[in-house]
Amino acid sequence: MSWRNFLLVALLVAAAGMVLPRVLENPYYFFAGYVVLQYVVIATGWNILGGYAGYTNFGTSAFFGAGVYTAAFLIKAFEAPLLVQVLAAAGIGMLLGLVTGYLTLRIQGVYFAIATVALVVVLETVVHNSDYLGGASGLTTIAPPAPAWFAGPTQYVFCVMLVLALVAVGIARAIEHSWVGRSLRAIRASEPAAEACGVPTLRMKLAACAISGGVIAMAGAPYPYYASHVDPLSAFSLTIGLNALAMPLIGGTRSWIGPVLGAVLLASVQQITTVTISSEFNILAVGLMLIAFVVLAPEGILGLVAELRERVGRRRATT
């Protein structure tokens, strides 16, 4: 897909999203769709560090929670507009990414994953103990009336999240197709070799941490208006970290479309099982899907597609 086609598709999706609130009556679809889009942003952000550079971030909810609480703080302190909240959350997320990057420069693999888990608990404890942010019981954050076009607050945050998702995917795609993406891939393949070839591995890792953190935190910013209430338990939930890692894995981590596919697929399955069966079976479905994909299709859907293409190609070559 060339840049022009990509932009065209993105514009079409955005336009369709903007028209949707005028067509679809039931706000529930927007309520559920918001979660799916939120995970598109999270999975895409995660993949910049986890997929391209191969650094498994287990603490996605630290960045998400930081975004949520940045927004909640701005609402409480200044009643700042949503755009300011999103930008501030992205800034805080980037800063947090940089700090994480600096703290973990010397460690790789599982150690990096563990360090990011630690980050979640430390942040959660800090929020827990901060009275201004509501402590353990949380803060109530009522959204101001949405612009008339969107028919309701849920539809409004849905459309905001749609735009954020498109921005996130655009960023991921731009990184993937540039020298930045190439050097991250080199780091993933072999860090010493990349260093030897003149890739500034340290700076690239920090950049990846910062961009990934910024995108994930951005996904948290509209959450206070979406849920009308923020508390540490849901903002720093383990489920977010788990989904962030599962979705790119299911879709495929090598390309920007992988996390999008994985997020849409897994989040939809979760939303549907939660409504139709029970929230417990939703977790079970995730567990089974994870194991099935890891064992049968470790490169995700993208890997399956590539394999299929290769097979078809080979068959053509032999006949």
Binding site: T56, G109, L242, L249, I283, L284, G287, L288, L290, V295
Partner: peptide
């Protein structure tokens, strides 16, 4: 050798199934 991401994911899946 499976990579970190894959084995972490596998064990996470197992732990979810045990919990449920």
């Amino acid at each position: 050798r499976g990579n970190t991401l894959q084995s972490l994911t596998l064990f996470f899946g197992v732990s979810l199934i045990v919990e449920i």
